[in-house]
Design a binder for these strands. Structure first.
Length: 498
RNA sequence: GGCGCUAUCGUCUAGGGGUUAGGACGGAAGAUUCUCAAUCUUCAAACCCGGGUUCGAUUCCCGGUAGCGCUACCA
C-alpha cells in the first residue's frame, strides 16, 4: 500500500487491507447500514482491498430469516457486491476458544448471578454499574466447583480496576480516544447459554478474518474500548478503527421503522424509483465530503475520491417528511435532485431499459422501440423512474382518460378558438408528414393563417393528444404518437367541444 | 445518574486567527422555450451561549447549554 498511487485507486491487490460490513439480521436493511456498507466498499475498492460481508447473527432470539433476506435484497439492489461472506453462527467454536483463552489467562471470570437481575440495583444512587459484587473475586476453587456442579454462569471480562490504567485507541475519524479502565464495566463475553456476546464474537472474528479496518457506526465508539481490551487479551493488535457519524431523522432521533416508517428502509428507495447509483451518491454525501464541492458523482468518481479523512464527525439528518403523502414530499429533496441528475446523465438506451420493466409492470404493453422513442421526451421531466407512469401515460394508453373540455381552450381564447384550431389541425395533420420539422412548419403556418399565436394553436392540440396541459414538446410528441392516434384524439376533442 | 462524542444557512456541507464565511438542495424572483420540465441569472438564508488566549476569534482553550451514543448474559 505504501507503493500505491495517492490520487487514483490502486490496481495492485492489497491483501493486507480487509474491511467488513457486519449487520445483525434483526430487521430490514436501513439507510444507515447501507451507508456503512458503501463506505466500507468504497474504502476496499479504493485501496484494492477485500470486502467482507459477515452476518452477526449470535442473537438467536431476535434473528430472523426474513431479515437476512431483506438485507440481501437491499444489498443486491445497491449492486456493489463483496468478496467473502461469513455467518457468525457458524463460527461459534472460534468464539468459545477465544473466550476460553482469555479466561485461562485470568482475564475473565465466571459470574453466577442469574441473568437480568441487576438492572434496577445497578443504576442505583451509587452510580454506574461496573460488576456484580462477589463474583469478580470468587476463588478459583469455588468457581470451578460451582461450574462443575452445573450452575450456569456468564463469562465476564475482568476489566483492570484501581490501577489508573487507561484504554486508548486512535480513531481515523474521531482521533485519539482515551478512557479510564475504571469507567468500563465488566462486560460479558459468553452468556450463560454459552453463546458468545456481540463484543466477543465480533472481535474474535475480526481478528480471525484479519480485518485491518473497522468502519462502522459511531454508536460503537464507546464500545471500542471493550473491543481493544478483548483484542489485547486475546493476543492481537487491534485493527484501525474509523467510526461514522450517525444518520438521524429530522427530529434528531435515530432512524427507526417504528417511528419513521418505510422511508428508512433501503428497498423503499428501490421501489419508489431511485437509481441505485443515485441513492449511493446521496448516502455518500451524508457524513462525508470530497471537499471540492462536487455533488453529483458516479461510482467510479466516488471510489476515486473516497478517503477516511473526508468523513466528518457530526450526525447527519436524512431530511425526509414523516407524514408522507407523495414521493415528492417524502424523500430528502437532495436525494430526489440527485436521482434526477443521474437519470439525465444516463444514455437514452440505458434509461429506456430501466423504464421499460416499470411500465410493463404497471400493465402497459409497450415495445422496446417505442420506449426508446418516448424516453428522450420525458428524461428531463422525471425525478424518479416511476414518474414515467405519470409523465408518459398518454403514450401507453389506447384511450385517453377523461379530461375537462375547458382544458382545450387556449390562453386568451375561447371555445370557438379551440374548435377552430382543432378543426384546422385535423385537416392539416392529415396531410402532413409526421416528422418534427414538417409538423413544426405546417402547424406554425396554420396558426398564422388562422391569426392566432403559435401557443394558442399548440395548446389545444397538446391537450387533445395528451389529455392535459403539461406535457413534453408538441412536435416530438405527435411524432411518437403517430398520425392515426393523433387524428383520432383530435377528433374526440372536437366532439367534446360540440 | 455515570462515561463519551458532536455543534457553520431549513437540510447536506466547504473553510479557517484578519474572508463580502464558499458550494449544493430546497425557497423566492427573473430570463428562455409551444405548455411543463431542463437550462441560465439574481435574491433571501448560518458560524449555539459565556468566558479566556490574542492586536484580532466563527476558527484555539475552558465552562455552559443542547443533541446524540454507550451504560444488557441486544447488536
Amino acid at each position: 500500500m505504501s507503493t500505491s498511487n495517492a490520487t487514483s485507486p490502486s490496481s495492485a491487490p492489497n491483501p493486507q487491507l480487509r474491511v467488513r460490513f457486519a449487520p445483525s439480521p434483526t430487521g430490514f436493511l436501513h439507510v444507515g447500514s447501507a451507508r456503512t456498507f458503501i463506505f466500507n466498499w468504497l474504502y476496499a475498492r479504493r485501496n484494492a482491498g477485500t470486502m467482507i460481508l459477515r452476518l452477526d447473527d449470535t442473537d438467536v432470539e431476535r434473528n430472523t430469516e426474513a431479515s437476512v433476506n431483506s438485507i440481501f435484497e437491499g444489498l443486491k439492489w445497491l449492486g456493489l457486491g463483496w468478496d467473502e461472506e461469513y455467518r457468525q453462527s457458524e463460527r461459534l467454536d472460534l468464539h468459545r476458544k477465544t473466550a476460553l483463552a482469555i479466561f485461562e489467562k485470568g482475564l475473565a471470570y465466571r459470574d453466577f448471578t442469574p441473568a437480568h437481575v441487576g438492572d434496577t440495583e445497578r443504576s442505583g444512587a451509587a452510580g454506574t454499574w461496573l460488576f456484580n459484587p462477589g463474583m469478580r473475586d470468587l476463588s478459583k476453587e469455588e468457581s470451578d466447583r460451582r461450574a462443575a456442579a452445573g450452575e450456569p454462569f456468564a463469562l465476564r471480562f475482568r476489566v483492570p480496576r484501581g490501577s489508573g490504567a487507561m484504554v486508548r485507541f486512535n480513531d481515523a475519524v474521531y482521533g485519539e480516544q482515551v478512557k479510564a479502565s475504571d469507567d468500563i464495566e465488566d462486560f460479558a463475553l459468553l452468556r450463560s447459554d454459552e453463546m458468545p456476546t456481540y463484543h466477543l464474537a465480533s472481535c474474535a472474528d475480526d481478528a480471525d478474518l484479519r480485518i485491518s479496518h473497522i468502519i462502522r457506526g459511531q454508536d460503537h465508539l464507546s464500545n471500542t474500548y471493550k473491543h481493544v481490551l478483548i483484542f489485547e487479551a486475546a493476543g492481537y493488535t487491534p485493527p484501525q478503527f474509523a467510526h461514522l457519524p450517525l444518520l438521524v431523522a429530522p427530529d434528531g432521533t435515530k432512524l427507526s421503522k417504528r417511528r419513521h416508517g418505510p422511508v428508512v428502509s433501503v428497498t423503499t428507495y428501490r421501489d419508489a424509483g431511485f437509481l441505485p447509483e443515485a441513492f449511493i451518491n446521496f448516502l455518500c454525501l451524508l457524513g462525508w465530503s470530497p471537499k471540492n464541492d462536487r455533488e453529483q458523482m458516479s461510482l467510479a468518481e466516488l471510489t476515486e475520491a473516497f478517503s477516511l479523512e473526508g468523513i466528518n464527525r457530526a450526525n447527519a439528518v436524512v431530511n425526509f417528511k414523516e407524514p408522507a403523502a407523495t414521493p415528492e414530499e417524502t424523500f430528502d429533496s437532495k436525494a430526489l435532485w440527485l436521482n434526477a441528475e443521474h437519470i439525465r446523465s444516463l444514455p437514452v438506451d440505458q434509461l429506456s431499459a430501466r423504464l421499460l420493466p416499470i411500465v410493463r409492470e404497471a400493465g402497459f404493453d409497450v415495445s422496446e422501440e417505442k420506449m426508446l422513442r418516448i424516453t428522450p421526451l420525458i428524461r428531463e421531466r422525471i425525478k424518479l423512474l416511476s414518474d414515467v407512469l405519470t409523465a408518459a401515460d398518454f403514450f401507453f394508453v389506447e384511450q385517453l382518460p377523461p379530461y375537462e373540455s375547458a382544458e382545450l381552450i387556449p390562453q386568451k381564447g375561447d371555445a370557438a378558438m379551440a374548435e377552430k384550431v382543432l378543426a384546422r389541425a385535423r385537416e392539416v395533420l392529415a396531410k402532413t408528414d409526421f416528422t418534427h420539422d414538417a409538423l413544426d412548419q405546417s402547424l406554425r403556418a396554420s396558426a398564422q393563417e388562422l391569426g392566432v399565436k403559435a401557443g394558442q394553436m399548440f395548446q389545444p392540440i397538446r391537450v387533445a393528444v395528451c389529455g392535459r396541459k403539461n406535457a413534453p414538446p408538441l412536435f416530438e410528441t405527435l411524432e411518437v404518437l403517430g398520425k392515426e392516434t393523433v387524428l383520432t384524439r383530435v377528433e374526440q376533442a372536437l366532439e367534446k367541444l360540440r
